[in-house]
């Protein structure tokens, strides 16, 4: 019980700090002092205290959607262990449930965007739906690679099994960590796929879908975003922890700083893709994921023989 509580607390810490680390990294690389570390939390607290404006075009679906978006993310969040800790929920096959819960939250926000009748939000919804569809195989293949090497199909079992250190496994797991990092970039709408700081609605993806949300709804969407970031970051960090035999005390900072600094650095050093290049970018990751899985399969066969 205590272990589960610790796991959940650490996950919340990860969720709250990643955005801070990204912002700080970006500021340092640009030579600025930067905003407060928890500024994003203060912003959300401010939003939680505000009223709301709803468009008359929208239906009740628009008001429920943020709750579904956050609710599905919360449930998915409860399945993720940090290294060998025990998550709150776990069952045989939960990796599939997590993927589909994230799909549920995606369809909720896509439908809400279409509910406003705005052409900009329609644009964002179409892009999000397409990117989500294309990234799904990459995610599943990444999870399948875990299943192949660890012999289980639940997050808790995968990451709690002690693995023998060997070069093959290390290579595969590091590549997997990379794949999940990119999946995180795609799903959370970061550079080079999307730029959260852009002010041009035409080129936004994630941001443009929430244009009509204000107050508590917007806060919920932001919180769900943090939770999702934590899910991806922790999976990526766990992949590394499996080979390094890290326990939670190393895995947690790794999840926060590893992903935070990487994404912050990418955001400072890279320009965003041209929108039409995004599909190629995502398909490259799908191909990469397939390659990791197949390489993993071949290496795995070798290990057995």
């Amino acid at each position: 019980m205590l272990v589960r509580l610790l796991n959940t607390l650490l996950m919340i810490v990860v969720a709250l700090s990643i955005t801070g680390v990204i912002n700080r990294t970006r500021a340092l690389l640009a030579g600025r002092k930067g905003i407060r570390f928890f500024q994003h939390v203060y912003n959300v607290r401010l939003l939680l205290r505000k009223g709301a404006v709803y468009s008359p075009t929208t239906t009740v679906l628009f008001r429920i959607a943020p709750c579904v978006y956050l609710g599905a993310a919360i449930i998915a969040f409860l399945f993720i262990p940090i290294a060998d800790l025990e998550p709150v929920l776990s069952f045989h096959g939960d990796i599939i449930l997590v993927a589909y819960l994230l799909a549920l939250s995606r369809i909720a926000i896509v439908l809400a965007a279409l509910d406003t009748g705005s052409s900009f939000e329609g644009m964002g919804a179409a892009r999000e739906a397409l990117y989500g569809a294309l990234v799904e195989p990459a995610l599943m293949m990444g999870l399948a690679t875990f299943a192949l090497f660890c012999g289980y199909s639940s997050f808790a079992d995968i990451f709690s099994t002690a693995q023998e250190m060997n070069t093959n496994l290390t290579i595969v797991m590091l590549l997997l960590a990379y794949v999940f990092l990119i999946i995180m970039i795609i799903e959370s709408g970061r550079v080079p796929v999307d730029d959260p700081r852009t002010h041009l609605e035409l080129t936004m993806i994630h941001e443009v879908m929430c244009l009509d949300y204000s107050g508590i709804d917007l806060a919920m969407i932001n919180i769900a975003g943090w939770l999702k970031n934590a899910i991806w970051a922790v999976i990526a960090a766990n992949a590394v922890s499996v080979v390094m035999c890290f326990h939670w005390e190393f895995a947690t900072p790794l999840a926060i700083f590893g992903t935070g600094i990487t994404i912050g650095a990418i955001e400072s050093l890279r320009a965003r893709n041209k929108l039409s290049r995004n599909i190629t970018y995502i398909l490259t990751i799908v191909a990469m994921s397939a390659l990791v899985l197949l390489t993993g399969f071949l290496l795995y066969q070798n290990i057995d023989i």
Partner: peptide
């Protein structure tokens, strides 16, 4: 691979159907 791709595109197809017909 096939089932996950199918699952992803189904979400696209049906959010299009529902969104275009009932919403907006």
């Amino acid at each position: 691979i096939a089932l996950s791709l199918i699952g992803g595109i189904v979400v696209l197809a049906f959010s299009k159907l529902y969104g275009v017909v009932f919403l907006g």
